[in-house]
Each structure stands twice: as structure tokens, then as C-alpha cells.
Amino acid sequence: MPECANCGGFVTESYVRVFAPGERETVRVCPNCEDKLRDGADVREARSKRT
């Protein structure tokens, strides 16, 4: 079962297929992460709290 590398939360295989870089089996950050977010091909610290 795939999980987020940042928070350990569950992500679907479809989400991994779309958002994981290259041939990785997991994503670096998911929509549930409050401290980081995707910024194009990179991951950055969130500037404000996400809800």
C-alpha cells in the first residue's frame, strides 16, 4: 500500500502514478501534509497553514 514519504499518510496508487517523480513507488508529499506542498517538480515548506 503506497504512503506519503513526508507524513506516512495513505495515498492511492493512482495518486502515486500521477505525482511521484520518475519511477518512485511513493510520493514525497500528499494533500494531507500541512508543513510541505508540491511546487512544480519540487517540494517546499508551506508558507501558511493549509485547511
Rank of each mutant, 00 (worst) to 15 (best):
V11P: 00
A20P: 06
A41W: 03
A41D: 13
E34A: 09
A41C: 01
G40L: 07
G40E: 07
G40H: 07
R28E: 04
V11T: 08
D42H: 08
K36T: 13
S48D: 11
A46P: 02
C33Q: 10
T51Q: 10
F10W: 10
D42Y: 09
D35Y: 13
A5F: 02
E45Q: 12
D35R: 15
A41F: 06
M1K: 13
G22Y: 05
A5T: 06
N6V: 03
R44Y: 01
A46W: 04
E25Q: 12
A41K: 11
G40P: 05
V29A: 06
F10A: 14
R17G: 01
E34D: 15
C4F: 01
E25W: 04
P2L: 05
E25H: 05
P31A: 09
D35T: 15
G22A: 06
K36P: 00
V11H: 01
T26N: 14
R50P: 01
V16W: 02
M1W: 06
S48P: 00
D39N: 14
P21V: 14
E13H: 12
C30V: 10
M1G: 09
G8W: 06
P21L: 13
R28C: 01
A20V: 06
C7R: 09
V11Y: 01
S48C: 04
D39Q: 12
E25I: 03
V43L: 04
K36G: 00
D39Y: 12
C7V: 05
V43N: 03
T26I: 03
E34L: 13
R17K: 15
G40V: 09
K36S: 05
Y15T: 04
